[in-house]
């Protein structure tokens, strides 16, 4: 899957905005939005928030978790635990990136947040690589991956799955009499 498609999915997440225009309720296929009143916060999907922001029609309120103190706690916990800790949003990386790229003037301490989220991401990706390594070493057939986000899975998906398939084919050809997974594919 292309990272831009994961970002596309992240754009469905709701964020709070403060519009500077007024508009009645609108009935989108995916649900109702609004009404919009100047100065009153309202929930909209990220794709709409970013569009309005680019047209200077709103101010975006950062999600609750996008806060230096909370992220510092998360980073500490993430570094302490061996397993993946729960994330505040399944799309934390994408949302951070989109908001900081397009609405950084609405995010207090944007630079610190960027660094913190990057640290959390790096720690998690390092864990992911470690667990992928032991998964392959132990020749496991099943792994539970709670709290892992789609973007994180996506960084390793193709490489990991293709390697597993290849190893499976090579191995099953080593076992005499086994007909499964013959090297017919590719």
């Amino acid at each position: 899957m292309d990272p831009s498609e994961v970002e596309f999915l992240a754009e469905k997440e709701l964020v709070k905005i403060i519009p500077n225009f007024s508009l009645d309720k609108i009935f989108l296929i995916g649900g109702d939005l609004g009404p919009f009143n100047p100065g009153l916060s309202v929930d909209v999907p990220l794709w709409l928030a970013l569009n309005l922001k680019q047209r200077q029609k709103c101010r975006i309120l950062p999600p609750d978790w996008m806060d230096v103190e909370k992220l510092e706690e998360m980073r500490a916990l993430e570094r302490k635990e061996d397993a993946f800790t729960p994330v505040p949003s399944l799309y934390y990386m994408e949302i951070t990136k989109l908001l900081l790229n397009h609405a950084s003037d609405n995010i207090p301490k944007a630079d610190e947040i960027r660094t913190l989220v990057k640290d959390i991401w790096d720690t998690r990706i390092a864990k992911l690589r470690l667990s992928a390594d032991s998964f392959i070493n132990q020749q496991e057939a099943h792994a539970q991956l709670d709290n892992l986000t789609l973007m994180e899975i996506n960084t390793t998906r193709e490489f990991l799955l293709d390697s597993l398939n290849f190893m499976f084919k090579l191995r099953s050809n080593l076992q005499p009499g086994s007909s499964k997974g013959q090297l017919t594919d590719y």
């Binding site: 754009e11 508009l23 009645d24 609108i26 989108l28 296929i29 995916g30 939005l33 709409l48 569009n51």
Partner: peptide, 16 residues
């Protein structure tokens, strides 16, 4: 029309 532009964007996303 402001509403129409919201709808168009949503249509584009669904179409994608």
């Amino acid at each position: 029309d402001a509403k129409a532009s919201f709808h168009r964007m949503e249509i584009d996303r669904i179409r994608f």
